[in-house]
Simulated scan of single mutants.
Amino acid sequence: MKSTIFLLLLSSVLLVCTLQAENPKADYEKLAKELEVRELSTLMFANYNDANLRKIDVYLEKHPKSPEREKVLYLRAYSIWSLHRYEEAPPAYAALLKEFPKSKFSRIARIREAAAYLFSGQAEQALPRLQALQKDFPDRPEMYARELAYALSRSGNQDAALAFMNYVETKMLFSKKDRLLPRIKHHFDMVRMIGKPVRDFNVKNHRSGKEINPGTLKGKVVLMDFWATWCRPCLAEIPHVKGTHKIFSHEGFEIFSVSLDDNRAKLDRMIADKKMDWLHHYDGKKWKNELAVKFGVHSVPANLLIDQNGIVQGVNLRGKAIRKLVSKLLDPQ
């Protein structure tokens, strides 16, 4: 009798433990707490780092049929995107969309999947995805207009990009969405620089005091990079920029960084610490920086890639997209 009672108690304990171990809701609540997840209607935010990404992967492996799986797949893609791992982000968003095609996160997932392709130098992959969004949401160009303009331009369709941007601006004005235009238009204005001579300027090198202007830069492929020490996405781009500089600096590639800081000492420390051994401009005026105003820069990171003849060939490139175009311009064969 005692042995029977013991076995029953043991079975009950094991059952409880098993149910707890296989409780996806409880595990999700624990995960959400550890990641400090904040949920809005169609968005989620969380603390992202490698350790938290591993926790997400553990949850997904443990609970392949969890009702919370949609949220966790989104958190995984969001974390990879936020860590600026743009080559890894498209498959992560695609996994969410494949498993949950009607996900409440589908629009943001589709946009970021395409944007990640853009940032990783794969405009040809981004373009059809953005055109599909345009087809599905013809009255919501503010969702995808910036990305589609970039994708058209980087796919060699600059004329189509110009026509699309003109169409979007007109449509949004007539649709009384003009209040949304400014944040889109400054991207459009950057794209419109492509194929034209870089605007004239004349400033001093922050470290040497020598003049920097289109004439002194002619004959080189130049990345004119607007950034700031307080800009996290800018800092995430530094390894990519340094890597491209290391490979091509002896072949005629130059970087010209324009700082939107107002703290010279902090800027100098970062230039030294990060070994950013190239041209720099600083005037301490932040958003009223002379070159930021001239080139209509309203957000950072922002950049222009200028060829040996002073013609703008690309704008707002990131990651491997920079290296890809630099290589092409230095060796057009």
Rank of each mutant, 00 (worst) to 15 (best):
residue 328 K to N: 10
residue 179 R to W: 11
residue 4 T to L: 15
residue 297 V to D: 04
residue 160 A to D: 06
residue 190 M to H: 14
residue 18 T to D: 12
residue 55 K to M: 11
residue 256 F to W: 12
residue 256 F to P: 00
residue 299 S to K: 10
residue 62 K to C: 09
residue 260 L to H: 09
residue 30 K to C: 00
residue 291 L to M: 15
residue 283 D to E: 07
residue 35 L to E: 06
residue 113 E to V: 00
residue 267 L to W: 02
residue 129 R to N: 13
residue 53 L to R: 09
residue 264 R to F: 00
residue 212 I to R: 15
residue 66 S to E: 12
residue 146 R to C: 00
residue 69 R to Q: 05
residue 246 K to P: 00
residue 229 T to G: 03
residue 92 A to F: 09
residue 199 R to K: 08
residue 117 Y to P: 00
residue 230 W to P: 01
residue 155 S to M: 04
residue 41 S to C: 05
residue 122 Q to S: 06
residue 129 R to Q: 15
residue 156 G to L: 10
residue 221 V to C: 10
residue 234 C to S: 08
residue 155 S to T: 04
residue 310 G to H: 12
residue 329 L to M: 13
residue 101 P to A: 11
residue 130 L to A: 04
residue 287 W to A: 08
residue 217 L to F: 07
residue 129 R to F: 13
residue 150 Y to I: 03
residue 45 F to R: 14
residue 180 L to Q: 02
residue 282 Y to C: 02
residue 293 V to L: 13
residue 97 L to Q: 12
residue 249 S to L: 15
residue 137 F to C: 04
residue 180 L to E: 00
residue 131 Q to K: 13
residue 82 S to I: 00
residue 57 D to K: 13
residue 63 H to M: 12
residue 245 H to K: 14
residue 144 Y to P: 01
residue 317 L to H: 04
residue 239 P to I: 15
residue 92 A to Q: 12
residue 5 I to W: 10
residue 124 E to H: 14
residue 73 L to H: 10
residue 107 R to D: 01
residue 103 S to G: 04
residue 46 A to Q: 13
residue 210 K to L: 05
residue 276 M to G: 02
residue 168 V to K: 11
residue 25 K to D: 06
residue 217 L to D: 10
residue 145 A to H: 12
residue 205 N to G: 04
residue 167 Y to I: 07
residue 116 A to K: 09
residue 99 E to T: 05
residue 1 M to C: 01
residue 168 V to E: 09
residue 212 I to Q: 14
residue 186 H to C: 05
residue 75 L to R: 12
residue 174 F to K: 14
residue 87 E to S: 10
residue 118 L to Q: 04
residue 157 N to I: 02
residue 231 C to S: 09
residue 36 E to F: 08
residue 74 Y to V: 05
residue 292 A to C: 04
residue 34 E to C: 03
residue 211 E to M: 10
residue 265 A to Y: 02
residue 29 E to D: 07
residue 83 L to E: 14
residue 143 M to W: 11
residue 174 F to P: 02
residue 80 I to G: 00
residue 296 G to S: 05
residue 246 K to Q: 11
residue 6 F to V: 06
residue 97 L to D: 09
residue 88 E to T: 01
residue 3 S to N: 01
residue 236 A to M: 08
residue 112 R to L: 05
residue 131 Q to M: 05
residue 198 V to G: 11
